[in-house]
């Protein structure tokens, strides 16, 4: 085997391999959208995060604007601290409302932002003040049952 032909084939192989990695990164993965642009970190505290997971999406008006990067437990306030990495292109007002929603009845849980009307914007490292915890299905059902039972008592 001629040296130059061999080198050419190896070069072709390595180029093809790198092209495949790039394809997986840019076309298959999300490196093109979320990772190439600047990001900043926000925090929010919740009483209960339900089944929220690290790497879950953060959405505003249904559009993914960031990802959950860390979930911790604050031992002093007994709250869950959720750290989110937000796409640098999007800014949110100080009084933005962060709630935990479920996609569909049993789908994955995500954090939804409802933008407020404040003039000042949230800065990197800020903590969102207004939050709403996850809806826990068991609680919802028991509430419903109790209110039904109470209704029945009133009628008698």
């Amino acid at each position: 085997m001629n040296r130059t032909v061999l080198d050419l084939w190896v070069g072709f192989f390595v180029a093809l391999g790198i092209a495949a990695v790039m394809f997986l990164a840019l076309k298959v993965g999300n490196l093109s959208s979320a990772r190439l642009s600047e990001t900043y970190v926000l925090q929010a505290k919740f009483d209960n995060i339900g089944g929220l997971k690290v790497r879950g999406p953060v959405k505003s008006a249904g559009v993914v604007v960031g990802r959950i990067s860390d979930i911790r437990f604050d031992a002093e306030t007994y709250e869950a601290v959720v750290e989110m990495t937000i796409d640098g292109r999007y800014r949110f007002p100080k009084d933005t409302f962060a709630s935990i929603f479920t996609a569909g009845l049993l789908g994955e849980q995500y954090i939804g932002f409802d933008a407020g009307g404040d003039e000042k914007m949230l800065q990197a490292g800020d903590t969102i003040a207004k939050t709403q915890s996850a809806v826990v299905l068991e609680k919802l059902i028991s509430q419903f049952l109790f209110s039904k039972a109470a209704d029945g008592q009133d009628k008698k």
Partner: peptide
């Protein structure tokens, strides 16, 4: 096909771990 893929495949987590 592509957008669903991109929104759920993470480069560092899925692709990089595969590598």
């Amino acid at each position: 096909y592509w957008s669903q893929m991109q929104s759920s495949v993470d480069f560092r987590f899925d692709v990089w771990n595969g590598i």
